[in-house]
Computed example of a mutant assay.
Amino acid sequence: MDKKELQKKYEEQDSTGRELLLEKLAFCKFADRYDFENYFRIDELNDSELLCLASFLYQQDCFLMLMEMLERYKEKFVLADSSLLWELEPDDALMERLSRIGVLSDV
């Protein structure tokens, strides 16, 4: 792909697509081989490698790529810790706030 083809691809995108394309160009330009290869094998990464990749995307201002990665692989980032629930002492303020954000809408 040459510069003209990149320009054409850029112009075909909406504003979000343009930003994502610019991020991907920056990632391809500035990522070392390790981070670049890790991006394509996210399912195989251990926690440390995954967080290093997320950190790299953040440091390079590749926020859309980071959001895309977080959304696509959210099960690798979000762990349910029910022990926190047992430590909560529900009071009126907490219950009112929970109802307002919809946590208790079906209870």
Rank of each mutant, 00 (worst) to 15 (best):
Q60E: 15
L85S: 14
K3I: 15
T16D: 05
M65R: 00
Q7A: 13
A80K: 13
Y39S: 09
L50D: 04
A26K: 08
R100E: 15
D35Q: 11
E19V: 09
D106L: 12
N46H: 10
K76F: 05
A80S: 06
G102H: 03
D106I: 03
K74Y: 14
F77L: 13
V107W: 08
E68I: 09
E49S: 12
L21K: 00
K4E: 14
S99N: 11
V107I: 12
F40E: 08
Y73H: 11
D81A: 14
F30N: 09
N46I: 06
T16V: 15
F36T: 02
S83P: 00
M65G: 02
V78R: 03
D92C: 05
N46Y: 07
F30C: 06
V103L: 14
M67H: 06
A31G: 08
Q13M: 13
L6Q: 10
E12F: 03
Y58A: 13
L70G: 01
L98N: 01
L6I: 13
L21F: 05
N46P: 01
F30Q: 08
L50K: 04
R33L: 07
F30Y: 14
Q13P: 01
Y34C: 04
S55C: 07
V78A: 12
E37P: 01
D14T: 04
L45G: 02
C62M: 02
M65W: 00
E68T: 13
E11S: 09
K4I: 14
C52W: 00
D106S: 12
E5S: 15
R41N: 11
E19C: 05
L88Q: 13
E87D: 13
Q13C: 10
Y10L: 15
Y58F: 14
Y10Q: 04
K4V: 10
D43Y: 07
E23T: 04
E11Y: 00
L25C: 14
L50S: 03
E5Q: 14
A93S: 15
Y73T: 03
S82E: 12
Q7R: 10
K4Q: 13
D81K: 14
E11F: 04
D61E: 12
L66E: 02
M1S: 12
P90E: 11
E49I: 03
L21N: 02
S48Y: 14
R100S: 15
Y58M: 14
K9W: 05
E23N: 09
E44S: 13
D91N: 15
V103R: 00
T16H: 10
D43C: 07
K9E: 12
D32Y: 07
K24V: 05
K4A: 12
D47I: 01
D92G: 04
L22Y: 01
S55K: 06
K3H: 06
D92S: 10
E12H: 07
Q59S: 10
Q60G: 01
S82A: 11
F40R: 03
R97P: 00
L98W: 05
L45D: 04
D81C: 10
A80G: 03
S99P: 01
R97Q: 07
S99W: 04
Q13D: 04
E89Q: 14
F36M: 06
L50I: 07
R41S: 15
V103H: 01
F40L: 09
K3G: 05
T16S: 08
E96W: 00
C52Q: 08
D35E: 12
S82Y: 10
E71G: 07
L53E: 02
L22W: 00
D2A: 12
L88D: 06
N46G: 10
D91T: 06
L53Q: 01
Y34A: 08
